[in-house]
Design a protein around this nucleic acid. Structure first.
Lengths: 151, 151
DNA sequence: TCAAATAGTGGGTAAAAGTGGGTAAAAGTG
DNA sequence: CACTTTTACCCACTTTTACCCACTATTTGA
């Protein structure tokens, strides 16, 4: 169960050092085998342990092929999903196209999000976060689960 | 079950000394393992014993991923949730980003709030408290549970 | 009122994590 | 098949963090 925010510098080769607190868990859980893909709603990357990803991929594949939104999701999510392995120094190599999509340069932010991670360019994340904080009490209907949630 | 208000000075490294009256309870209950995150509606931090937090995280994770308000809550709450451990001197180390969010400098206020704590900058807390007292009898409709509450 | 104990505060230091490249092997290309 | 480019692995350096110890202030009890 991942959580928390970490500032990470990508190096000149586009590698991201996985924070140590996650490494043991990832090594046990999936032998450091991960899958990176894009988020379809935001300019950020999604990083899954391979077994978690495979469950999701099966669900996406099962969507109806003649529904346009389903095809969109399939092409974007499965199409960009890239296998990566954590190397001996605990780093992930992110391919050029993925880095471009999320506008990743040196300064990035890794967010733990339960069963996956999100990787943002620092600049984009700070903008997005501030926008989220301003928008308190968005008018959009809240799911019932949220209305009754007691923190 | 936590309650009460305490003035606490953060030291130069951003550490907060947990008031002694809570330490024994926290040590027994969760071995001093805590989770700190942000409050999405106010500029303050929320501090949970880890077991209490994990219940909440599971509920938040289960929200639908394509609902915008749910994504907002997930990114803000889970994204900022940071594991911290009470050190040998009974202190919690608060990371830079968390301190910045809540505008914490030296003088802070810790509020016991049942299963969690809130940590405020002293200045912000005094403002907020006074505002609450001015606002008595806010016109917003009270939830039914409140209407029937007997103090 | 004073002494002893406990709580709170402030830093120094060793160890660990993060970062930056060099080089050899592998893959891709003409 | 030779050459270029990319990838993976390794090592060295820098920064950060966690742990420890020492000092000060406050409370408690004689």
């Amino acid at each position: 169960m991942f959580r928390g925010v970490t500032n990470i510098n990508l190096d000149a080769k586009g590698r991201m050092a996985v924070p140590t607190r996650y490494r043991e868990c990832l090594a046990e859980h999936c032998g450091g085998q991960m899958v990176v893909t894009i988020d379809t709603e935001e300019r950020c990357l999604l990083i899954y342990p391979i077994d978690e990803w495979e469950v999701i991929q099966r669900k996406i594949e099962a969507l109806p092929s003649f529904n346009k939104e389903a095809r969109r999701i399939q092409r974007l999510l499965i199409g960009h999903a890239t296998d990566v392995e954590i190397d001996g120094s605990g780093r992930l190599l992110l391919s050029g196209p993925l880095r471009e999509y999320a506008r990743l340069e040196k300064k990035t932010v890794l967010l733990g999000q339960g069963k996956k991670f999100e990787l943002w360019s620092e600049e984009l994340w700070l903008q997005r976060r501030d926008a989220y904080i301003e928008d308190k009490g968005d008018s959009e209907a809240l799911p019932d689960e949220l209305l009754s949630l007691s923190l």
